[in-house]
Write a protein that binds this DNA or RNA. Structure first.
Lengths: 343, 343
DNA sequence: CATTCGACTGGGACCGGTCTCAGGTTGTCA
DNA sequence: TGACAACCTGAGACCGGTCCCAGTCGAATG
């Protein structure tokens, strides 16, 4: 009855989507009561609640996010911020895994994921402005370099932030989700030694990235006396750098190489083959990440699996905690050795 | 002077970020005038404009997106909607290229990119609701299947949409950005024939995807009498499906195979090698997409390059046109043959 | 000199929610 | 019986913009 009446009354503006006032009118209550029902329904009588719920169902009402954000000051969205020179990060298949996980985790919480790219200085600037304007509630920072200029700005603005593997120097101020780099590297080094290899080299990442620094630390620790500094080359995680590093290393005598990324491992394998030698028979090559590439490579690459789904889920969880007022905290996750054919 | 005074007056609430009213007070004009300056500055005297601009600069004022959206009805953001079962799409390196391009194009226009994933039915439902609630101005739909259930909902809701390669049956209602599949396939087939191959097979994509259907059409057209239906296998663009398809095809006599994706080509190469044969000496394998994987594969894969940057740029351009009121339109872009070692 | 026009300005009514607060019931306890 | 708490409700003031409209002012026009 009420419904019909209301329909007739609003026949002119019938097409517009319903507002909270229309729901209130239809349910015979005030806007405040409708608002209460929407937000948990405390201090609302069963009758009123039911009337409101029916009206909402009948009209297909959805709250206007912008209006809500304006009133509450909460944006209802988180930023997924990519800071590398884009070339690098978008080539990297691992970022897609993180993105997927984060998107899923947010969707479950009825929040949205805003993608931000800060590659060039100009982009960096506009991103900084965007963030300090409060358009999102928090930031998931994806970057592997420690010296990320945006970091200071984020801290200054005071926007809740969780980093994925960029801890150094800001442990107190920012939350971090990472894997145990040293233990992972030790495990891989141990695996190579267990295979009987003795002259083991490493292709590391840049020294200003946690993965570049700590994987080398673990590698060195585990190797002990077997460690030979002349068998360490620095790459930038890319295929090309792995190829170049391996080409240099071939001048020495090696029988196994641990690369700090699957892509560098793939490059290293290519270098070994170009030199007319075989993987793993002549030289074993191991990677890091288990980035999809690893399983389908020829030969399939032995690698350390990073728990991408856990990482992204934890990023969201911890970030929401911080937004809710908790202190920053760090989470360290375990990796898993995946033995395939290359080592 | 005015600045100092205003500072003193607002000393208590000094920390909050400035609103348009504060800018107005500081510049000695009304909110309306500030708003005019922000939005193009028409019908504003030079004096007033300058005062406002100085106030904005001094305070670092940024308009509140939520308030603006509420007032204007425009969201200032576009959705990047992934509809495949996520497994597939996130594995696919090509989507990352599209995403990067779209993010850049939007950032240049001071708009934001919202990532939406509609993999499961539940996600599909919440995405549909999100979109019909008008939280974004338009949708970039990334899907390769024609029978995308969300399509009908998008059309019904009437939200501006641009598709990336999902045209069939909705050309009138939706804008589409795609490549010339038939011409591309013909070009690749012509290349293989020019290399002297005569028994040429194809690994297609699913028949309900434009890439699956039309690449086969072009392939068949170009081959003419050389076309042999028993040398056509259907895959799903994945590495595994390419491997399986090639394994089956090896039972016949082939000397070249055109795979409808680089990943399938990689799988096919693996299959050829497992059979103890060489690429390209014994069997040439070509791919499609030029998805990054192709260049670094061993051997590097001959492929058709899709202009990802153009595709993403056009998606944004056309979508904004439609949002501005233009009729849906379709753009067809050219591909480029990239000859490497595999064929 | 009155009229008209165009540039410019500010007041207020929105946009669609949330939230505080005062007020109304009802029930219980002293 | 009065006091007080617990529960429920709606009025109205926000949140921070945009935009319509009425109005001022100087210059040009008839």
């Amino acid at each position: 009855m009420l419904w019909v009446e209301s329909q007739a009354m609003s026949d002119v503006s019938a097409k517009r989507k319903p507002t909270i006032r229309q729901i209130a009118a239809q349910a015979g209550v005030s806007r405040s009561t409708v608002s209460r029902v929407i937000n948990g329904g405390h201090w609302v009588s069963p009758d009123a609640r039911q009337a409101v719920e029916e009206a909402i169902l009948a009209t297909g009402y959805t709250a206007n996010h912008h209006a809500r954000s304006l009133a509450t000051g909460r944006a209802g969205s988180l930023a997924f911020l990519l800071t590398e020179p884009q070339q690098l990060l978008f080539d990297d298949p691992t970022f897609a895994l993180l993105l997927r996980g984060a998107a899923e985790a947010l969707a479950q919480r009825a929040m949205t994921l805003v993608l931000l790219v800060a590659g060039t200085p100009a982009e960096r600037e506009s991103v900084a402005q965007f963030l300090s304007a409060g358009h999102v509630d928090g930031v998931m920072l994806i970057s592997s370099h420690e010296s990320e200029p945006l970091l200071d700005q984020l801290i200054e603005v005071g926007i809740p932030t969780v980093c994925c593997g960029v801890p150094l120097g800001h442990e107190r101020e920012l939350s971090t989700i990472s894997v145990d780099e040293i233990a992972s590297a030790r495990a891989m080094a141990a695996h190579l030694m267990a295979q009987g290899h003795r002259r083991i080299g490493m292709i590391t990442g840049p020294d200003d990235t946690p993965g570049g620094r700590y994987r080398l630390v673990g590698f060195r620790e585990e190797l002990g006396d077997l460690y030979d500094g002349s068998l360490v080359e620095v790459g930038d995680y890319s295929y090309e750098s792995g190829l170049a590093a391996m080409t240099r290393m071939l001048e020495h005598d090696v029988d196994a190489v641990f690369a700090a990324s699957d892509r560098m491992a793939a490059g290293a394998i290519a270098a070994v083959r170009r030199a007319g030698r075989r993987v793993p028979e002549d030289i074993a090559i191991a990677g890091f990440d288990d980035s999809g590439l690893a399983a389908t490579h020829e030969p399939p690459i032995t690698t350390m699996r990073q728990p991408w789904d856990q990482i992204s889920a934890q990023m969201v969880t911890v970030l929401l905690e911080v937004i809710a007022g908790a202190s920053p905290r760090s989470v360290i996750l375990d990796t898993e050795l995946v033995v395939r054919d290359s080592a």
